[in-house]
Design a protein around this nucleic acid. Structure first.
Lengths: 177, 177
DNA sequence: AGATACATGTAAACGGTTACATGATTCA
DNA sequence: TGAATCATGTAACCGTTTACATGTATCT
């Protein structure tokens, strides 16, 4: 299960509470990679603790529990990350599904939709680019790992945006028969 | 539910049996966008028929049933495709999750993993490029809708591959402190 | 004092996967 | 004739989402 490894990975960067982990899934992680709400996170943490992959290292105010990965958890995570995904990895992307189904629309509708996609992805790329410029000034030297993910998102948006523009052109090219 | 609309979209391109729809999900559709096995497709087709969004237009050999979209189904599909995804669209991508969790690996492991990603995505891009060249000769004129999806996949792979190469460079740049 | 954010949990419903089951047709 | 492919279905299970539930600490 991917949630298992997502939690191990997040805890490997720093010990956190379930509440903080929940917030992490509301950011880029949930946006591009995997979603989870607190209602799946809390039970999963309990299961991981039972399996000895994580442990509660501190209990703070308001009943908060800080979890940390154990050595066994770290080993399990590395195993998962380094083992090539045996079969094809599972991908579920509603936005991409829409693109696959473009053929069900007439040309005008398809172009309208593609224009919207091009605009919104370009906009989101701009946002990420602005964030990168800011962060670039503050932290010089080799890119942090978080920056790798951010750059991934940026390039992703740029790619989709330019693809959409290309697709519009293709659809508008009159038939040569 | 996305499966609903995936089926409506596939049937909108041409009437098909559940068996044929199942095959469609085994190709690019299931690879990049959405997966479904026959055990979810057959019951879903029955539900769609009950709601009047599809109908059985022919029954062939070996008990096969050919489904087609109704006008109501077409309207429902257009609604879904054209309505901007209200909240953020659901994305689940195990491969991307791995990239987000790179930070849990030491530098050497991370580079090894990124190299593998760069190589495999470049390879898959090559495959798609080869297919495009072939198809390009056969079907001149404006791109078919299927070609839009194929181009999308190609650009996606190229982007991930070049990102991985960039990420490796970043990790190998010595700290400037 | 009241609103907001922090913090954790359970239970029912839902969607999808895996395992099980059956039978017809085609090909070697 | 036996294997592979075509073709459809059900049932149990599993992971996720939605709805429900509770209480604490901070800020205005």
């Amino acid at each position: 299960m991917s949630l298992t490894h997502a939690l191990l990975g997040l805890l490997a960067t720093r010990p956190q509470s379930g509440y903080e982990l929940t917030k992490a899934f509301e950011g880029d992680l949930g946006r591009y990679a995997w979603q989870a709400g607190h209602t799946s996170i809390y039970p999963e943490l309990a299961k991981l603790a039972e399996r000895g992959l994580v442990e509660v290292t501190a209990e703070g105010a308001r009943g908060s529990k800080t979890y940390d990965v154990t050595d066994a958890g770290r080993a399990e995570l590395r195993d998962w990350l380094m083992s090539p995904p045996s079969r094809q990895a599972k991908v579920r992307n509603e936005q991409v599904l829409r693109m696959f189904l473009l053929s069900a629309l007439d040309r005008d509708d398809a172009v309208t939709l593609l224009r919207r996609i091009a605009a919104s992805t370009a906009e989101q790329a701009d946002v990420l680019r602005a964030i990168r410029e800011e962060a670039g000034d503050v932290v010089p030297g080799p890119a942090g790992f978080g920056q790798l993910a951010a750059e991934y998102g940026l390039r992703q948006y740029e790619t989709v945006s330019s693809w959409a523009l290309w697709a519009i052109e293709q659809l508008q090219t009159p038939a040569r028969t």
